[in-house]
Write a protein that binds this DNA or RNA. Sequence first.
DNA 1: GTGAAAGCGCTAACAC
DNA 2: GTGTTAGCGCTTTCAC
Lengths: 332, 332
Amino acid sequence: MSSIYDIAKLTGFSSTTVARALSNKGYCKPKTKEIIYEAASTLNYTPNLSAKTLRNNRTQRILLCIPDICNPFYFRMIQGASKVLEENDYYVMLCSTEKEIAKELKMLSLLQQKYCDGVILISFNFCEENIGAIRRIGRPVILGNRYLGQREDDPFDYVYVDHIYGMELAADHLFDKGCKNVLLLTGSREDQTSRERTEGFLRALGRRSLPEDPAYIVDCRYNTSGAYEAFNRFLERGIPVDGVIAANDLAAYGVLRSCREHGLSVPGDLRLVSFDNTDYALVSSPTLTSVDMCQYSLGEQLALRLLERIEGNTKIRNITLKPTLIERESSE
Amino acid sequence: MSSIYDIAKLTGFSSTTVARALSNKGYCKPKTKEIIYEAASTLNYTPNLSAKTLRNNRTQRILLCIPDICNPFYFRMIQGASKVLEENDYYVMLCSTEKEIAKELKMLSLLQQKYCDGVILISFNFCEENIGAIRRIGRPVILGNRYLGQREDDPFDYVYVDHIYGMELAADHLFDKGCKNVLLLTGSREDQTSRERTEGFLRALGRRSLPEDPAYIVDCRYNTSGAYEAFNRFLERGIPVDGVIAANDLAAYGVLRSCREHGLSVPGDLRLVSFDNTDYALVSSPTLTSVDMCQYSLGEQLALRLLERIEGNTKIRNITLKPTLIERESSE
DNA sequence: GTGAAAGCGCTAACAC
DNA sequence: GTGTTAGCGCTTTCAC
């Protein structure tokens, strides 16, 4: 409501003196400062962020865009990014894009309109429109996925988790436990993550000279009901199976349900490993062995790299993180 | 990067004309408009939001503050609020306060600093400091909980869900199914929600002239392990039980686990009802009968009421929503 | 119909 | 050390 000028008028000091007193920059007599603080308090003064931003070209604000607030995969990543950004006196604004390109472009336009100092984009759609917009805007952006078409002068980097390696961990673990017939439940061929994971699976098979059988690679659409139905259909075919790798913890729930209905015990009759290591992995019965995709440090690294870019370090530097396997009851 | 003045310089028109052309307000020759649009595009012009806000005192931005992004209870509420706000051309900025008063005050200071047009506060701490700040700021705020100390000229309203009624639904359902000994797993006495729910439970008992037995009201801390341990301890006491009301879906998971370990079948040996009707209720085995706390419409109503306040309708109007029971396998 | 100019609130440069 | 001033980019009022 009130501005620096109002305080100046009330106290008789110049606006500059008032500004100096309030910002603690430059010298100001203690007595003067006291008077000004008191006036500010009686006038209920608050600095106006827009004026400050207009002047400084700095917002101290970061936009964190995720495709879906309900997906537990993102939680710890959000926390990791928030921690780093808040420690550096940035505000974190979380926005859900629902995988709609229109909303993604809207977020990018906020970056262009100086609404924020930078943007972190997670599971972003790498279509020409989006990438073109990022390049045109030319302001700090970090992606949370691997992007292969990157150019040297692009205004963005990416931080990503190695899905190939993660899948090798999962498959090796089951083979080490003695599994002979391992089913891979994953996403569709179009999905980059699924392709990478399938590659990891095939590598693990190859290293042990095990045969590649397409019957053991099934699309489960990354959710409980998709996995439930896919696994039911798989069991109907009567193919032997003593190990399952689920696309994520939710998909593992579908497998568990199907097993229960078919009288199969986990891990007695078959061992189960899933991905993401979310809270779901902790509360199921049995608890789930799950590949931790280091979401928290993913968030931290995204934030750190973005801050570097904002500080002017614009040389491309992409970061790869290595997942780890967390063993629990489902694969004992 | 470029401003209206840059376009004016390039095209030779006055800045006013350029502004008119770009905003589509007031008349502008089609030919002129075309030239200006082209210049804007070659200069890669973007309006500056801060300048606009500074001038208009309007941000078209709403802050949605929740205590914890990981809690599935809030998901559908966030979606409901976002839908309404986006339909009305507002941007939704989600912020997590982690139940820390310092962060809550920080969010309120953003409201004061004209960073946004209004704030929705969910599960807000009603301490004097916070309520005092809201009153001092005097700008639009909506609370997502019932607040009893409200004054007539307060700058906020609340929208809340009737927990007493919700608990009556849950208890009546179990009694209707023939349960005789129903255990209530809830939160601590200090928690307003827990107190209201306990009241609903006692009312349901009273209506059927059933005795109040404190042994059947147990604190489970609203999470899986808390409920697991509390229910284990309860079973050890050997008290008869054929129905359980869990504080939320996560707590129900703890009960399910304990039942499995004790060889109790759900719903065969005991029926189970929980609260919140989140995705967790859908993916467990058995699926959970759960009281839907109408999170989506809660979000919608919060947003609608806030928009009313922003439009100048500042008369206090609080809203109460009635939950519904969703029946699933756990209480069949 | 078009243009000049003031001002939103803040900050930094430069006088004094 | 303190004060004056210009300007960030936009919008609105008021002349012409």
